[in-house]
Design a protein around this nucleic acid. Structure first.
Length: 508
RNA sequence: GGUCCGUUCGUCUAGGGGUUAGGACGCAUCCCUUUCACGGAUGAAACACGGGUUCGAUUCCCGUACGGACUACCA
């Protein structure tokens, strides 16, 4: 169909990258990988005011964590650099000059304040063919005046001269043909007074120079795409213009509108891939990583927000996503962010992860609690807990009692079940379990001891086992009792039995 | 306000002129399980509305409503 595919993910380093951005990166990545193309990271740092130190590093780290490594980008090399727009200032100046030379742009000397005033007077004010002649620019001013203002170094911008009467048709891969009339378009600023380009100029110049074939970005860019087409036209690049695909937005879980960082704190849910630490705690946010979500699960979840393969398969590895991905299958309507679904994906991924890997992921959390379990033991723990967790921190939260004493008993259940006559039975049980040789302490052995005792004493499993479970874990929930006992070990089980018998009596 | 985009169960979605409108999350019930989960089964749950076009529209067209994005010397 065309040359090798080259796509770019072009965030601006104004803070943490939220999951909408991650999904955009993902779709770009998928298209590139599917066709053995190139995935480029370009940092759009042309706004010096909004620039946030550390944001670029954050973006790299987030992409790395997600497994979406760019092939070209800042610090990664590539033949089309530099990949940071602030380092390409001279390039944009040159192209802005070209626009000027071609009569496609003009100098504008209006101050931001003057324009502000215009907008206040007239809400619908637009800097365009209808208004430009009464404003301060090289089209309205006598030539000598323009020359003078320039020579004296008056601050000025360069604006695109939009000619009315043109029809712009964007053949969007997601939305089909979208038409705009140039009469509706304003004369966008191309080069700001500080000499840096606006998004519009930088974007078009870079996409052209970097030989981008597909622009996959959020729907918020659709309206300005008309300007972008005009720019390609002005430069004479229209025939090699990239194809556009505008993605549906990711919406707030509740209410309306697109998902924002504030929704995260407001609803107590992560909206960033990894945590963002700001000096101001108000502007610090957790991430999916810290929440205990596996990157593969996040990606799988995100991929399905606005796209699906048309089959009933839902669990896809990154490679499978790559194989199945196609732009035609991207939906048009906004997709609401649903944390429950994200959790479900995570649970599926945890269940599918082998215990050795799981143990590696869980270990730091356990060590943070001050415990240093042996590998094999921790793997055993993971095996018992794997089907009972949805997020990584659940391993500790739901299974802490494997590492340290029971914090509290399920009193209600003890009161309901504990009977004086059980006391002797439990003491017997303690004795019998003490008799088991340490080397014999295994699930089936323990089970046999308990069962035979229950038979001899005429206790029903239903009266004994729940209490045994509470004695050992404090709760009615958890892995099979005998497997639990095997992992806990004889000493711990005997100790907990003793303390439990004593406490249960008091709860009666 | 203007321009542009969108609208299938609560949510993510499949489908597409004639279907019992399919799946997934969540929810409910049941089975499995001497717990909890996992797993399995079942159930409730949707084509925004009004006009066309058509033998027949959820599907095509036009309106309406609703929602959204954009409307900066921000991206």
């Amino acid at each position: 169909m065309m040359g090798p595919i080259r796509v770019r993910f072009a965030p601006s380093p104004t803070g943490a990258l939220h999951i909408g951005g991650v999904r955009t990166a993902l779709y770009n990545y998928l298209l590139a990988k599917k066709y053995q193309g190139t995935f480029i990271l370009r940092i759009e740092d042309t706004d010096q005011v909004r620039y946030v130190p550390g944001a670029e590093a954050y973006i790299m780290e987030a992409l790395r964590w997600c497994g979406l490594m760019p092939d070209e980008g800042p610090g990664l090399g590539g033949e089309f650099g530099p990949y940071r727009q602030s380092e390409r200032k001279a390039i944009y100046a040159r192209y802005a000059q070209e626009l000027l030379d071609k009569g496609q742009a003009y100098y504008a000397f209006d101050t931001p304040e003057a324009l502000e005033q215009q907008r206040e007077q007239d809400k619908t004010f637009k800097y365009d063919a209808a208004t430009r002649l009464r404003l301060r620019n090289s089209l309205a001013l006598p030539e000598a005046e323009t020359v003078r203002l320039l020579a004296e170094g008056h601050p000025h911008t360069i604006r695109l001269k939009v000619t009315p009467g043109q029809t712009i048709v964007i053949q969007d891969l997601v939305r089909g043909d979208v038409r705009f009339q140039s009469d509706e378009l304003d004369d966008k600023v191309m080069l700001k007074a500080d000499g840096l380009p606006t998004y519009h100029l930088a974007n078009i110049v870079d996409d052209h120079l970097m030989q981008i074939t597909h622009v996959i970005r959020g729907e918020e860019w659709l309206p300005s795409t008309a300007h972008h087409v005009l720019l390609y036209r002005a430069f004479g690049w229209e025939s090699e213009m990239p194809q556009f695909a505008h993605l549906p937005l990711i919406l707030k879980p509740d209410g309306k509108g697109k998902l924002s960082k504030r929704d995260g704190v407001r609803l107590g849910i992560p909206v960033f891939p990894i945590a963002w630490e700001d000096e101001n705690p108000e502007d610090s946010f957790t991430g999916f990583r810290e929440f205990g979500v596996l990157p593969e699960a996040l990606l799988n979840f995100l991929a399905f927000l606005g796209w699906n393969p048309g089959t009933e398969q839902e669990i896809f590895s990154l490679d499978e996503l790559t194989a199945a991905f196609s732009i035609e299958k991207i939906g048009k309507a906004g997709a609401r962010f649903d944390l429950d679904k994200a959790k479900w994906f995570n649970q599926q991924y945890i269940q599918a992860t082998d215990v050795v890997t799981l143990a590696r992921m869980v270990r730091p959390m356990i060590e943070a609690q001050g415990h240093q379990p042996a590998d094999a033991w921790l793997e055993g723990f993971c095996a018992l807990m794997r089907d009972r967790v949805t997020l990584l921190p659940d391993f500790w939260e739901k299974g802490y009692y494997f590492f340290e004493p029971v914090r509290e008993y399920d009193v209600k259940n003890v009161q309901k079940r504990w009977k004086p006559e059980l006391r002797a039975g439990f003491e017997q049980l303690h004795a019998r379990l003490s008799d088991v040789a340490g080397s014999q302490w295994q699930g089936p052995v323990v089970q046999e001891v308990v069962n035979s005792l229950m038979q001899a004493q005429n206790f029903k499993p239903g009266e004994v086992l729940p209490l045994l479970r509470i004695a050992l874990a404090g709760t009615m929930q958890g892995p099979a009792v005998f497997e639990m006992m095997a992992l806990l070990g004889q000493t711990v089980c005997l100790q907990r039995l003793e303390t439990a018998i004593a406490s249960f009596d008091k709860m009666e």
